[in-house]
Amino acid sequence: MKGPLFYSKILLFGEYGIIKDSKGLSIPYNFFKGALKSEDTLSANAQESNDSLRNYYTYLENLQRSEPGLISFKLDSLKQDVEKGMYFDSSIPQGYGIGSSGALVAAIYDKYAINKITVLENLTREKLLKLKEIFGKMESFFHGKSSGLDPLNSYLSLPILINSRDNIESTSIPSQNLNGKGAVFLLDSGIIGETAPMVQIFMEKMKQEGFRNVLKDQFIKHTDACVEDFVSGNVKSLFGNLKQLSNVVLDHFKPMIPKEFHKLWKQGIETNDYYLKLCGSGGGGYILGFTEDLEKARIALKDHHLEVVYNF
């Protein structure tokens, strides 16, 4: 891969909650990455990406026209590069909840935005919110409404702490303890998830008062506590809150959990060997796992491949 690399991300906490102003914590995940490339002869995958970029060019042209105060692009350069066979060369799996479209958006902004906000500047809250707004509009092309957080994370390659909708900051998280027994891991559901239908289910559920109360009094409460525990390194409290959060998701977000994983999800809560939670919007893709004892979790989940993201 040539050119600047843009990495995948993992929203550790905050899926769905951030729509309703919960806290959130998103970290870059350098295992998967993508970069813009050009070639004369394109493979089938590269051709598909190139075709998608043609449509994206039209979308950005319309965005610039409708919101001239928000963003300007070097549209001529973008058009020429797409016609010359530019595509997004990416190892980030699509539909897995780890920001495949976010990395592409970050790459396009980095190369073609005029007067772009750069990572080297003093990133004030205003600049971060501006970037998030721009990225939200740019990413809407891929799956309807977007918060803009995935591209922001990919662009900055820094952990992002979401305190509320209008209060975000880059943050540091405790250094990994590579010899520690605890871990955050990814579990491959083997199913491609689609964001839009899952968000639709969530929005339908939000029409019920009972669900809104659960979201506010349980889901957001435990999400906020998990974010605070993780950032401050309070592992004992973190796992107490994770168990509660995993339970709430199993009880109230079942449609977002692939059926084959309902039993495993419950087993984790009952044995305390691991706790599972949604990674992104759910419905497939990756499932996030947390364990205080990775070996125990590996044995309990022996039929599944665990990809370790972070060690406690």
Rank of each mutant, 00 (worst) to 15 (best):
S154W: 04
S154F: 05
S154A: 12
S154M: 07
Y155P: 06
Y155D: 05
Y155S: 05
L156M: 07
L156H: 05
L156K: 07
S157E: 13
S157C: 11
S157A: 14
L158K: 15
L158N: 10
L158G: 03
L158A: 12
P159G: 03
P159K: 03
P159Q: 08
I160T: 00
L161G: 03
L161E: 14
I162G: 04
I162R: 00
I162S: 04
I162Y: 04
N163Q: 13
N163W: 03
N163S: 14
N163T: 04
S164V: 00
S164G: 12
S164Y: 07
S164D: 15
R165K: 14
R165P: 02
R165F: 13
R165D: 14
D166C: 08
D166R: 09
D166H: 10
D166Y: 09
D166G: 14
N167H: 13
N167I: 02
N167Q: 13
N167W: 07
N167A: 12
N167F: 09
I168V: 13
I168Q: 06
I168K: 02
I168S: 06
I168G: 02
I168Y: 02
I168L: 10
I168M: 09
E169T: 10
E169V: 04
E169G: 08
E169F: 08
E169Q: 14
S170C: 14
S170N: 12
S170F: 11
T171Y: 06
T171N: 06
T171G: 08
T171H: 06
S172H: 11
S172R: 11
S172T: 13
S172F: 09
I173D: 03
I173Y: 01
I173V: 12
I173Q: 02
P174C: 05
P174W: 00
S175G: 12
S175Q: 14
S175F: 11
S175H: 12
S175K: 13
Q176G: 12
Q176W: 01
Q176H: 04
Q176N: 08
N177K: 11
N177A: 11
N177R: 11
L178E: 15
L178I: 10
L178R: 11
L178S: 13
N179Q: 13
G180Y: 04
G180I: 00
G180R: 00
G180P: 06
K181M: 07
K181D: 15
K181C: 08
G182S: 15
G182L: 03
G182I: 04
G182M: 05
A183K: 02
A183G: 03
A183Y: 00
V184G: 05
F185S: 00
L186A: 10
L186S: 09
L186C: 08
L186Q: 07
L186P: 01
L187Y: 01
L187P: 01
L187M: 12
L187C: 08
D188L: 06
D188A: 08
D188G: 11
D188V: 00
D188P: 09
D188H: 10
S189H: 01
S189A: 07
S189R: 00
S189I: 02
G190I: 05
G190Q: 08
G190S: 09
G190W: 04
G190A: 08
I191T: 11
I191G: 07
I192S: 15
I192D: 14
I192N: 14
I192P: 06
I192E: 15
I192F: 12
G193S: 02
G193D: 05
G193F: 02
G193A: 04
